[in-house]
Simulated scan of single mutants.
Amino acid sequence: MPPLEPVDERLQQAMKLVLLALLPGMAVMFWLNGWGMLINLLLAGISALATEALVLHLRKRPLWPTLQDGSALVTATLLALALPPYCPWWVTVSAALCAMAFGKHLYGGVGSNPFNPAMLGFALVMVSFPQQLTHWPVSHGMDLLKGLQHVFGLGVDQAPDAWAQATALDSLRINKSLTMDELFTANPAFGRYGGHGVEWVNLAFLAGGVFLLQRRVFTWHAPAGMLSSLFVISLLCWNGSGSDSNGSPLFHLLTGASMLGAFFIATEPVSGPRTPGARLLFGAGVGLLTYVIRTWGGYPDGVAFAVLLMNLGVPALDRLVASRQERLAR
């Protein structure tokens, strides 16, 4: 039996703070979508912990210190928040399995992964099962029993006829005839400034992110880079309220996974840059790519793919900033 390894207390404390900071957004999502997010969370958490335990056993590594550090629960929570509530159980399980096996342990575990594990798991199921990941529920959807029936495919009448709807980002991308004012008035997916209810979700994640900044869990560079880049590119490409509008800067900041991506995904320390300047560039790249994928891509929200693409560029960003600092120091 391999000897026990000490738990990384700094990592464990950081993971606890991240989970605490996610609670406001989770509470708003529960209010908005009902039990679906909690079902996702339970499935993702069990699957992530089980996968981690299995891989550690196969690698002949001790289970308890790694399972106790909280990183698997953070990955599972981010996945549960990114996936549509009430998506089929096997989608959530597959995403958690891929995140832990291919996103984390394939490269050696905590501290070695070049890609954000949660976003890698999400991207793999998005590419593999795109139809299942476009069914987002209407506000204040199912009760617990109907939700479980839908998730596990039980019963004949699994869900009401009008249970699912296109998201605000989907509706905006395919819109060809309605002005923005007409779209916000006629389409129930739109709220006052962004997606209906999703505005409050983003504000809740913003509050959680500010809490983490105050506790110095991460620096301001990646979130500031992402949000400012997303704001600037959406402002430059915004053409008012016409039918060909791509949405206002406020719409893009308060819709989709903007705040979750800025404060909880782009700030992942292992797969991100090491220096403050590189983190700022990394965040700016994530914001730019998010807008490009949202507006002209084939997926409803571009945060996951934007983060993974920028993960590929992390070594180059670190070298670029380091070489510039060396030139300035001469």
Rank of each mutant, 00 (worst) to 15 (best):
T77R: 00
K60H: 12
H57G: 13
S71L: 13
A99S: 09
G103E: 01
L81F: 15
T77P: 02
A96I: 02
A53T: 02
L73T: 09
L97S: 05
P65C: 09
A53F: 01
Y86I: 14
S94L: 14
S94M: 14
R61C: 04
W64A: 15
H105S: 10
A96E: 02
L56Y: 06
P84E: 08
A82K: 12
H105G: 10
W90E: 13
V74H: 02
L54Y: 15
W89P: 01
V55Y: 10
T77N: 04
L78E: 03
A76K: 00
L67W: 07
A101N: 06
P85Q: 07
L56S: 02
A53Q: 01
H57K: 14
A53H: 05
Q68A: 14
T75N: 07
V93R: 02
L79W: 06
T66R: 13
A95H: 08
A72V: 03
P88W: 11
P84N: 12
P85T: 06
S71A: 13
S94V: 12
Y86N: 08
F102E: 09
C98V: 14
L97R: 04
L67K: 05
D69E: 14
K60I: 04
L97E: 05
M100S: 04
P65E: 05
L58H: 11
P62F: 00
L73M: 13
L58Q: 10
W90D: 13
A101F: 12
L106E: 03
L79R: 05
A80H: 09
G103M: 02
S71N: 04
H57F: 14
S71W: 08
V74Y: 01
A99R: 06
L73I: 10
T77C: 08
A82E: 12
F102H: 06
Y107T: 04
V74A: 00
M100P: 01
L79K: 02
L67A: 10
V91I: 15
